[in-house]
Computed example of a mutant assay.
Amino acid sequence: MRNIFLLLTAFLFYSNVSPAQKTTKGNYVLVIHGGAGTILKSKMTPEKEAAYRAALQKALETGYAALQSGKSSVDAVEATIHVLEDDPHFNAGKGAVFTHDGRNELDAAIMDGKTLSAGAVAGVRTIRNPISAARAVMEKSEHVLLTGAGADQFAKEAGLEIVDPSYFFTQDRWDNLQQALKEDSIKAKKNSGSNEDPTPYDTSETILTQNNKYGITNVDNKFGTVGCAALDLYGNLAAGTSTGGMTNKKYGRVGDSPLIGAGTYANNNTVAVSCTGWGEYFIRCTVAYDLSAMMEYKKMSVKDAGKAVIDKVAKLGGNGGLIALDKNGNMTMPFNTEGMYRGAVTRDGKIEIYFYNN
């Protein structure tokens, strides 16, 4: 009777533990994210869920294959993010959102935990895979961050695939911009006191946020930034992040993704981190480096440090999430939104994929 009771107790315990918690610690080699935000099962169609799952699965399989073949963590991060940049479901590469002026301006960063070398690009418009441009900056230039037309030119000279800006057009992202512009127009009419029906795309008047500041507040229901953290066979960590930024962004706005220490960081002594969310808050909290510093100086676990930095973001009023993989193969995926597209693969090839906050 006692044995039956013990078995029942164990069954009930594991039934209330999330799949991520069931997996043995220290067994991960690759972790990815595809954005955090209002991701609810009640609003997810079976077809859409299947498409996201397939994309994350392909990305994890690609990165795992690279690691298993003996390639470096940097190679695995680049290859993994390529898959996500080429998939229009995510706000990176092909699926990048549009700026206020109707353009796609992309950002990316990559960091090698072994050498602390890093590279990043921001505001690029013609590079098919910005993560490769970030790697080229890291390996083929004297700099860490290149921006705009100069970064595009550098990528061309470095031999990367260059595309016409129209390559990044997707109808869904364009429709999202039109809705944002319409909302801008409504705000402008209200600010001017006009009773006229707003012209959908009349944004000639300067729009101030509710805090009476220039720019835009975050109105995205989800963040589609993609990222990857990897641990290779030689014990080296790497992290990378790629994004299209925020819909309707203005004034050449750049978020946390291409900023080393804010949205991306890797150090063999501690952890590899990639963030997704409301970039302004991740910048102010220097989230990625702060997580590493907590582990290095306060001897916190990756899980505890991850929770602590996301709590800091939340306290300031920001939202989003991150993935982190430490030097021992322990990982965490904290977020403070309704969900986050995320996944991981273990040393023996077991793939885990999660969407929701449960």
Results as ranks from 00 to 15, higher is better:
A59D: 01
T346W: 10
I216T: 08
G318E: 03
D220F: 00
A66V: 02
T332W: 04
A229I: 02
A344R: 06
L237T: 05
D290C: 04
T276M: 07
K299R: 12
G37E: 00
V124L: 03
K156L: 11
A36T: 04
K190T: 07
G244P: 09
M1Q: 13
T147Y: 00
N211D: 15
T241N: 09
A118K: 00
P334K: 02
A96I: 03
I32F: 06
D290V: 05
D202E: 06
N248A: 12
T270K: 10
K213M: 15
R342F: 06
V313F: 00
S15R: 12
I39P: 00
G159Q: 10
L237P: 08
G224I: 11
A155M: 06
L325S: 01
L146W: 00
F11L: 14
V124M: 05
R135H: 05
F355S: 00
T247S: 11
G349L: 09
G261K: 05
A188R: 10
V254E: 02
F223R: 00
I32M: 14
D256E: 12
K303C: 01
D112G: 03
G252C: 08
G329Q: 06
I131C: 04
G245C: 04
A108I: 01
Y297I: 14
A158G: 09
L116F: 09
G255A: 08
G123P: 01
A96W: 07
T225M: 09
R53G: 08
V219A: 14
S192K: 13
K250G: 01
M246T: 10
S117P: 00
A229Y: 03
L146P: 08
K327Q: 15
N330Y: 13
Y234Q: 12
L7R: 13
T203D: 03
I81T: 02
V97A: 06
V124Q: 05
Y234W: 06
T247E: 06
V287Q: 02
I131H: 01
E196K: 14
N176S: 15
G321V: 00
K350S: 11
M246N: 09
V124H: 02
A51L: 11
V124R: 01
Y265A: 07
P165W: 11
A239V: 05
R2P: 08
T147Q: 08
K140H: 11
M138E: 00
R103W: 09
G215E: 05
V83R: 05
Q153A: 15
K58W: 08
E85S: 11
N336W: 01
P130R: 03
R253Y: 12
D152I: 11
L84P: 04
G317M: 01
